[in-house]
Design a protein around this nucleic acid. Structure first.
Lengths: 333, 333
DNA sequence: TCCGATCCAGAGATCGATCTCTGGCCATCA
DNA sequence: TGATGGCCAGAGATCGATCTCTGGATCGGA
């Protein structure tokens, strides 16, 4: 038996489609007895509005895409993704909007642009963007608004929606924490210099050290991965064997760095203190556990959802929210 | 300017709506010159079919829900979820169907049943089910087909779709691996006895030990969590201080168990070998790294997607696929 | 050359919710 | 008592793609 429609409800309630629609979409100017009859009929039939018909007539899809580069996911970076996804999905759900998952790394490169034009969604949230620069132009040219979680490498329009954590402030936090622990011979393992968040972390780190009167010149670069962190630490240690504190600007690089330090006979934290950045799961499972600058990933997802909902609904809202980073004290520093 | 419709395409191509529709939906019985004109017009306008109209007319939504209990997610179990989600999302996407995320732990308990009735989706995949028994009845009564990844605690219809790994075989694998390593005084930290997968792991373990002529009586139960694994290990060790091998039927419980063993002065694996179950991220980051029985999580997600697509499309398919578990050899056994 | 069969283009109808617009009903006031 | 205004129920139209059904055109055979 087919799903009940508004006509069925109206027939049972003894009213017209229009009246039934008015009742069920919350219109108030309806006779209370008729309204009650409609409510009763709807309940009796288990009526639920057909979303396709509503969308077709109304113009708004009631869905937001979550664009995810699944191939970037592995057991180490998984929590990054999971946390943001959780925040975004819950934020959208709370706004009565369906989150539609779009794998960004599928072979058919034309599929996402086509989907953005299909009217099936009102907007999109891009969750990981390191490797999807090939999609960048398609996303920038999107007919529906896009919210970026973290700043991508591509040039964005001035009114683009970007939700980010306070990378600059996080750099300052790391510097101050190491200084407060009495460390004075410090080095930084920075991210790729063509990534704005990486540059902001360096800037914060340097500004804070300058203010404290500590040498800020020891710097090497990695690619945010574990192995690049190991390699970077080896270079840094060669140039500055007397270091007593290191800021690795991702947890994965911190993990790689600590392995190299331990292999070189340095104890962490007694000989060299190490601070990471992100606070993903590896920070709690490694030995020693990692002191790190925490990005509020779930909040970032939630704020991205709330922001794009506001934009879709035409409300005025801050399109570049920046969320605070915090220091999480554990064993490594 | 509004999105182009089929009428616009037809007008530019100089044909009727029906002809344009025939061309764009792959119908062959159309004059090649007309077809070419339609294709050209569609490309020129950047035409993309309105999915709401297609759904309204066609009856099939082209979307499958992914029901996820986000509150169960944390940094330790995240990879379980992530892997299944990845497989499911890619499987659905490859089948030209949109994956719609549904948080199962939202306050509004009536929302998911309502959504299942809205016609917005053709089916659903349930990814984590430990804590969502309150939704069970709603899901069992669903008007659209449901695929369960892993067996839930609720009673299912005989034609229910359940994708599972070979828990029984995994139990046998664990027993054989410990026996092959020369261990003879073995114990098992089992899962809750009201969960069928937990019972299957026990059965496999016991059958294999019986066949090998090894005592299978040492058994304690945990709740699949890290702390319950620690507590269970403590009980097991108290009753059987001379154990030289332990099968913990989840990686988290294995992790908790190893901490207790080490605290009790036992070296792992030289004094006591430990095998886990799942192969989630903690297995690779703990020390020693964990030898474990691997569930093919991503494959389970993919198979769930393929199975429900087949059911939705009315194709004949195995509704209870069971995927092989494998032993992953690392340091702990 | 004419008729019948085949093929295919196009007008109309359809899916279900909702917006517009008309008109009926009731109340109030002259 | 009749007229005017307000309020609200209901018929019709609408969104866009696609299925049905009709009829015109073309081709082959007689």
């Amino acid at each position: 038996m087919p799903r009940p429609t508004l006509v069925d409800v109206a027939k049972i309630a003894g009213v017209s489609r229009a009246t039934a629609a008015r009742v069920l979409s919350g219109e108030t100017k309806v006779d209370v007895r008729m309204a009650a009859a409609v409510e009763r009929a709807a309940k009796e039939l288990g009526y639920e509005a057909n979303s396709a018909a509503r969308v077709l007539r109304g113009g708004r899809a009631g869905a937001i895409a979550l664009i995810v580069a699944f191939n970037e996911l592995d057991s180490l970076t998984g929590t990054f993704f999971t946390s943001v996804l959780k925040g975004a999905a819950k934020g959208l759900y709370a706004g009565e909007v369906q989150p539609v998952l779009l794998p960004a790394d599928h072979e058919d490169g034309d599929r996402i642009p086509r989907f953005l034009r299909s009217g099936a969604i009102d907007g999109a949230i891009v969750i990981l963007q390191h490797e999807i620069t090939h999609l960048a132009q398609a996303l920038v040219d999107s007919p529906v608004p896009i919210a970026w979680v973290g700043r991508p490498r591509v040039a964005l329009a001035p009114d683009a929606i970007v939700v980010d954590s306070d990378n600059y402030g996080g750099g300052r936090l790391a510097a101050r924490a190491l200084a407060d622990a009495g460390r004075r011979r410090l080095g930084i393992i920075a991210g790729p210099s063509d990534m704005e968040p990486a540059r902001d972390r360096i800037r914060g780190w340097r500004d804070e050290l300058a203010q404290l009167g500590i040498d800020d010149s020891p710097i090497v670069h990695g690619e945010f991965t574990l192995v690049s962190g190991s390699a970077a630490m080896a270079r840094l240690l060669k140039r500055h064997p007397d270091l007593d504190g290191v800021f690795a600007s991702s947890d994965l690089m911190a993990s790689g760095a600590i392995r190299v330090l331990q292999a070189a006979g340095r104890r962490v934290p007694s000989d060299v203190a190490v601070i990471g950045f992100d606070d993903v799961s590896i920070a709690t499972t490694m030995d020693p556990t990692l002191t790190t600058v925490r990005q509020p990933l779930e909040d970032m997802g939630r704020v991205a959802a709330e922001t794009i909902l506001a934009v879709v609904q035409g409300r005025d809202v801050d399109r570049r929210p920046i969320l605070d980073t915090t220091l999480v004290q554990r064993e490594s520093a």
